[in-house]
C-alpha cells in the first residue's frame, strides 16, 4: 500500500473517530461501538480503573470484572435515559436505538487511553500516601514529577474530548442550535452524571 493511501486511510480513521456522529451509520457504527466497548472494558481492567459514573474515572488497586461491567452498563443506561428523554422532548420522535446507543459508546472512546494512564503514573500510590501523610516528602516528589503533570493534563484533555463528543452527538441528533442546545445538553449531562453516581454508590 502506498504511503499516500496509508495516510488517507489514517485521515479517514481519525475523521470517523472524531466526527462519528455525522459520518458513521449502519454496520460501521455498530461494529465500531462494539469494538470501543470491549476496548474500554479491557483497558480499564488492565489499568485498574473504575468508571464509577459518567465522566468519572478512579484508579484503584484492583478492579473486578463484574464491578467494571456494572459501572459501564450504569453509565450507558444513565446517558441513554436522559439523552433519549431530551431528544424525545425536542424532536417529538423516539430516538432510534441503533443510532443512539452506539453513538453514546463511541463518545466514550477517550476512556481507552485514559484507563491506561495508571501505567504512566501510580495514582493509587499517591492517594494512599496522601491519606497517611498529606505533605510527606514522597508525595511531594510524586507531585513534582513530569509523569504526574502529563497524566493529569491527559486526564483533563480526555474528559474534555468526551464532553465534546457527547455534545456533538446531541447537537446532530437534536438538530438544535444556540442557547437552547447548550441548556438541554448541560441538563441531560448533569442528570446522567448524577443518576450514574447515585446508582454506582447504592449498588456498591
Amino acid at each position: 500500500m502506498s504511503l499516500f493511501k496509508k495516510f488517507k486511510n489514517l485521515k479517514v480513521l481519525i475523521m470517523n473517530s472524531v466526527r462519528f456522529f455525522e459520518r458513521l451509520y449502519g454496520k460501521k457504527l455498530i461494529w465500531g461501538a462494539l469494538a470501543i466497548g470491549i476496548g474500554i472494558y479491557v483497558s480499564a481492567l488492565i489499568g485498574n480503573a473504575r468508571l464509577d459514573g459518567v465522566l468519572s474515572l478512579h484508579f484503584v488497586s484492583k478492579v473486578s470484572p463484574a464491578t467494571l461491567l456494572g459501572d459501564m452498563l450504569i453509565n450507558l443506561l444513565s446517558l441513554f435515559l436522559f439523552f433519549g428523554a431530551a431528544l424525545y422532548s425536542i424532536t417529538r420522535r423516539i430516538p432510534r436505538l441503533v443510532d443512539l446507543i452506539p453513538q453514546l459508546i463511541w463518545a466514550q472512546w477517550p476512556l481507552i487511553p485514559l484507563s491506561l494512564l495508571s501505567f504512566l503514573f501510580d495514582f493509587q500510590q499517591l492517594q494512599s500516601l496522601s491519606q497517611d501523610q498529606p505533605l510527606g516528602t514522597e508525595s511531594l516528589d510524586m507531585l513534582s514529577s513530569g509523569s504526574f503533570w502529563f497524566s493529569t493534563l491527559a486526564l483533563i484533555a480526555g474528559i474534555i474530548f468526551e464532553v465534546h463528543f457527547l455534545f456533538g452527538l446531541f447537537k446532530v441528533d437534536s438538530g438544535l442550535k444556540g442557547a437552547k442546545l447548550n441548556w438541554y445538553f448541560a441538563l441531560s449531562l448533569i442528570l446522567s452524571m448524577t443518576l450514574s453516581i447515585y446508582l454506582v454508590t447504592i449498588l456498591n
Binding site: F20, F21, E22, R23, L24, Y25, G26, L29, R96, D99, Q103, V172, D173, G175
Partner: peptide, 16 residues
C-alpha cells in the same frame, strides 16, 4: 437509511 448510505452521513444528520 438509504439516503445516509448515498450521502455518507449518519441517520440523524440526514433526518436533520
Amino acid at each position: 437509511k438509504e439516503m445516509s448510505k448515498i450521502l455518507g452521513f449518519s441517520y440523524p444528520k440526514v433526518r436533520n
